[in-house]
Design a protein around this nucleic acid. Structure first.
Lengths: 185, 185
DNA sequence: AAACTAAAGTTCGATGCTAAACAGTACACA
DNA sequence: TGTGTACTGTTTAGCATCGAACTTTAGTTT
């Protein structure tokens, strides 16, 4: 088992280690700024992975969850056209067509033509789809509460406020371009 | 141009609007927690998009950037095997093979057999690859500094500390499983 | 030595995505 | 009435990825 002289430890560096490396390789960095940005990025990644695992236990893919979420957010009767969905999710209409095929086959949505304008299609959440959404929300809110459990109420407020200010800044600086922005809240 | 009676406003809800909708559709939510989690998620998305745009102006894809970053992080002489890269980036070895093909063709890396163990391959950053990395770092650090410009030094410290605590929490709770975790710091 | 075992990387088939070409419907205007 | 134009959703071709089978090499065992 020759692994002694091998130059490969498969070990991910800690946040502080990573910042130290960046500073060594590129002097002109503010460690405080790097810490915020990299912590943010790592945190989001870990959350996405955790989320993905929870979805898998319910037999859902990330793609399906995104669509469910948008339909619920649209409010009753939980209807939206494929085009609107595609725009909200930042997908091409082509991708949406295929996603609908799969989700309709899985019984999460129905798809029918709009009789008042036969070019349009109406995608509607099924009862089963809505039930899945509720199950995910239960798991997700428990996970999120657990994630923040070490923070006091005041700290949660502070964090929310600081993040909101950053968000406003980036939204002002980098306007939407299209409508293409999605995530897995 | 018939768009008046259309049920589709392509408009993304604000953070507060979104949280209000969630509460309407699913009562059992802590708005403070939702605010933190959703702001985090939105922020990361916006940053990724901004980052992707900057990379594009340098003629780089996100995929290429990830590989450049890992090679530099490995330190001089900026060498790593495809397997180690794949693990760090959370890709299958198969995907790595193709990425290498493209990046070698683009002159960002070289790929040669390890003569001391002819099953292994050594991927090494070219001077051009390193130069690209530096260019990206210059743009990125400017962007990050701009993003945080509204926060005082003290606020930056507080934010970094709070995020770090969240990160520690999630790392303890959701151990790595594999080595598969990457991001675009 | 000869044969197992383990490990690294590549090749192969299938999936989901994008971009671009396409087809069908509704409204405007002559 | 007929033609033009805009808008929707689907189809097609190409690409990146994954999972699994395969090839080559190194070390281990007998």
């Amino acid at each position: 088992m020759p692994e002694q002289p091998s130059p490969d430890r498969g070990h991910e560096p800690t946040l502080d280690e990573q910042i130290a490396i960046y500073q060594r390789e590129y002097g002109d960095l503010d460690p405080q700024v790097e810490k915020v940005v990299n912590a943010l990025s790592r945190l989001d990644r870990r959350m996405s992975v955790a989320y993905g695992r929870q979805l898998a236990t319910l037999g859902l893919t990330q793609a399906e969850w995104e669509v469910l979420k948008e339909l619920v957010m649209a409010g009753r009767p939980y209807r939206l056209g494929p085009g609107a969905l595609a725009k909200r999710l930042g997908l091409t209409p082509a991708a949406m067509t295929h996603r609908m095929d799969r989700m309709a086959a899985a019984g999460l949505i129905t798809r029918e033509r709009d009789e008042s304008n036969r070019v349009r299609v109406i995608v509607e959440l099924t009862d089963e789809g809505r039930e899945k959404w509720l199950q995910v929300m239960r798991m997700a809110s428990a996970f999120e509460e657990d994630l923040l459990q070490d923070l006091s109420n005041e700290e949660r407020g502070t964090l929310g406020e600081l993040l909101t200010r950053l968000l406003r800044r980036v939204e002002d600086t980098q306007p939407d371009a299209d409508g293409r922005l999605s995530d897995l809240d």
